[in-house]
Amino acid sequence: MSNPYVPVIARIERIIEETPDVKTFHLVTAAGKPFAPRPGQLAMLSLLPVGEGMFSVSGQGEAHLEFAIKKVGQLTTALHEAEVGQAVGIRGPYGNGFPVEELQGKDLVFIGGGIGLAPLRSLINYCLAHRPDYGELLIIYGARTPADLVFKEELFRHWPQAPGTAVHVTVDAGDAGWQGPVGLVPALLEQLNPRPQGKVAITCGPPVMIKFVLQALERMGYRDDQVITTLERRMKCGLGKCGRCNLGSKYVCLDGPVFTLGQLKALPAEY
């Protein structure tokens, strides 16, 4: 029986500098794609001896996985110093991922902030790849400054051109070249005011943004089962064993990271 704590060794095939502190890494193994995750699933990445951490898979190609990673701690700093060709340990996929079947036929409102667009991106691209299964896609995204916007190519080129897809991007503070809206994501959401009928809102971002987004959605009439979010917690195993990522009797690594607002309201608010 295989040891579930041993990673597969992958190599960095490509690095994309998204923002001053976010890079996207494309990982491949000798056998090609390490595994085929569902949108929203997680993977444990390790850079030894520095450490191992859980990351959301932000996208995948035929033969690689993509991870958009923000520099926040020791492991992510080391990852940011890594170069193409370097070995990275990977194991997974972990977690439930987005309920792509249940979302079929629905209009989807994506509300992201900062690096929170990473898990949403995997679902957005999945929906576009399975276009007939999904309704209108509305993407609302914001970051602190124009330089902090991730996935610019998709935000400004691919997604706006995709059928039935609208993209609205805002920043907290503009710069000389910024022509778009300036303001916070929850305000933009309320301004756009997408009617809840037939829709599901999917949000991920900094806790303070989530808090106000949830309040706005509630005011707009979204029911708890029409709102989906993803959580982050410190994790060591990804297997529901090491103990630390529990919310009540649920484990973010097994039962999450994707929860409906209704599910979250039934759990202790320890996130």
Partner: peptide, 16 residues
């Protein structure tokens, strides 16, 4: 859990 060796291009698993 397992041993690793750090080579020029990063760590490889040497023994589980």
């Amino acid at each position: 859990l397992f041993h690793y060796r750090v080579e020029a291009e990063g760590a490889v698993i040497s023994e589980s």
